[in-house]
Design a protein around this nucleic acid. Sequence first.
DNA 1: GATGAATGAGTATTCATTCAT
DNA 2: CATGAATGAATACTCATTCAT
Lengths: 213, 213, 213, 213
Amino acid sequence: MSPRTSKQFQEIREEKRTLIMDTALEHFAREGYHATTITHIAKHAGISKGLMYNYFESKEALLKAIIERSVKEVLNYFDTDRDGYLSEQEFEFFVRRIGVLLREKRVFWSLLFQILMQSEVREHFLSSFVGAGSLESSGINPAPDMPAAQIMKVVTDYFVRKGERMGPGYDPVAETKLFLLTVKGYAITSIYAGDEEEAEDEKIINRIIEMFK
Amino acid sequence: MSPRTSKQFQEIREEKRTLIMDTALEHFAREGYHATTITHIAKHAGISKGLMYNYFESKEALLKAIIERSVKEVLNYFDTDRDGYLSEQEFEFFVRRIGVLLREKRVFWSLLFQILMQSEVREHFLSSFVGAGSLESSGINPAPDMPAAQIMKVVTDYFVRKGERMGPGYDPVAETKLFLLTVKGYAITSIYAGDEEEAEDEKIINRIIEMFK
Amino acid sequence: MSPRTSKQFQEIREEKRTLIMDTALEHFAREGYHATTITHIAKHAGISKGLMYNYFESKEALLKAIIERSVKEVLNYFDTDRDGYLSEQEFEFFVRRIGVLLREKRVFWSLLFQILMQSEVREHFLSSFVGAGSLESSGINPAPDMPAAQIMKVVTDYFVRKGERMGPGYDPVAETKLFLLTVKGYAITSIYAGDEEEAEDEKIINRIIEMFK
Amino acid sequence: MSPRTSKQFQEIREEKRTLIMDTALEHFAREGYHATTITHIAKHAGISKGLMYNYFESKEALLKAIIERSVKEVLNYFDTDRDGYLSEQEFEFFVRRIGVLLREKRVFWSLLFQILMQSEVREHFLSSFVGAGSLESSGINPAPDMPAAQIMKVVTDYFVRKGERMGPGYDPVAETKLFLLTVKGYAITSIYAGDEEEAEDEKIINRIIEMFK
DNA sequence: GATGAATGAGTATTCATTCAT
DNA sequence: CATGAATGAATACTCATTCAT
């Protein structure tokens, strides 16, 4: 009988927001952003279309919120590396973590790649939180203020240092690019592989570590 | 003034068909399939909407035709390898050819990847001419009747043979997967890289060859 | 701490009702009835949407209440004239009072005119308390039971009497119409004029009085 | 069998455009802009909703087109006065013409007034072709480049000249304002009067001319 | 063959209103 | 009394597709 406290309201909002985002992510990833209708999302989330708009200003805003959330989570995942230095041992750990991350957030990555593939959409959407060009191009000196760019820098530095160790025959720039490209390849392979193939993944990760450590 | 022969008609038809497909490909790739309207394509191709439907049954049919055509071209490109055997020298040639192919048909690949990323769409569209799962999964024993599958087989065989050469420490299955994944990573990197970065591509290709030859 | 008396409750209710109506009037007038949302009103009145419906059955009912209240106030303003007779001196006073009234309730008049301009809406809304056609048409013999109609009658009578004084060249019906029309013109000019122009209003009022006295 | 010529297409477009605008004007005026739905307009115009958007970019664009067209027609109506001088005889003619104009385009005026009454909407819509403030405020020296402003100037000049004729007791500014206000009053009275009352209009016009000539 | 007007099913979005708490 | 989450009917707008000419 007594009215809901503002804390209760807060909780309801948070829960429902998450529910909507999770549902939407799933469908955006599977059917594509355009092909997924708000009606569809609402139905699968068990709410009315109208309510969606109580939580998100628009379909695009919903997409942005999803990406923003996941990017934040991913970056948090790498927070331990923020000392800006990657030792050989840490490098191995780093690569393995990428593997875990890909498996754990498969649906999100699927969506993210999809979006990155549309040149028109890319800038409009991602520049703000990923740092334009940091993930998709192989450019090496990215703007240092973006979290994603920081990770990039850490990797680059690792290969530069390795270059010092390896002598003049070693090209750190090319090696960085090759590593990044391999990671991307691993990523899309991993994202779209059926679950039954996962078992063997370990071997591939080991080989990648072996190659670039 | 004299009435055109039916052969001339045929040629005009073929030209216009190509024009439409080229225009559509460009826009599908840049703005995405859904975001591209028939009106837009028709306008940029310099024809009327109605005529579009004279050449293609539907928007989907147009997309299918585009993919079909390009897949055919790509496969023709590898026709020399149809003897089913890839020598070490041929392997190097094979990898370089992939690089060329990616650069030459960037727009198409951009579109293809986009489509492959949508799990729902993938099966519906591609199973027919690429062979389900052949490009996107790393599965190794594909159906042998598909042209894409044949290329796959050639590659697999190459690594099996290399395995025999390398001794028991060498895992051909893992190595094949690693190679495919590297190629994919190279592909998406190459497709979405700006033109200014192309210059350095050669080094990467060389490194890949070195790694897997 | 002691429980509020029912009288206090009543007062609170009345105050809140007034607050809602004032807020709504402001927004209805400025942005238009349709463009103003309940959410907007509630937010600006500092209450919840739900509470709004505790005080008013519907958006339309709110509008009706606003108009009703203002019409009542306006008519009260003219209560002194209810003796049904307008002397020459009283006429001057009457016209000046119209000027004051327009300035004091600008926002309401703005809303009222807006509503009166929609033929479809007019009858539906206003017939009940203003008397159909009394304000917007120049018809001269209105239904005598409506307060607005009574004012109309007083004015008409004034001009009839003036006609007796002025002789056969004078047409009281036309003169009444001209007067009403002038008042209307003055009204919309006054309502929509910027505040800086108000200063000169006095001259206009004087000229109107001069013309019709 | 042969395809339509571009001239035929032109004609079809022109006709349908007019049909849509006429239908929409009618409904906008009667029910108000917001309350009139596109579906409603389309149904009454005997076309599909979709076609509406083939001719007008949006509901708002439709409204703008309607106003633009009518304003143009109205201004053309006064084109003869463009010599910038209004003699006494011409003044009489001018006033009568206003009367005719109001009767002939009643529906449009009804719509225009409605829009002018919403302060929020006014500037957004009308500034461009009417000249901001020229019709609704009584300011006297309007920007001289707007057609509506030119008419305004002609009127103002008329009263200034009359002031010279009338001597120091005559205030041309006040008189201009009074005239404009009377015209506005006449306008709204005329627009919203039923047809049966039109007959008597002549007398009023005569009185207005008498008063201001 | 060629055109673009016309259709209509579908899509995102809005908003008055209800109701559990 | 008070809240704001939830609903759903309505609305503007889009676009692949058809078809008369």
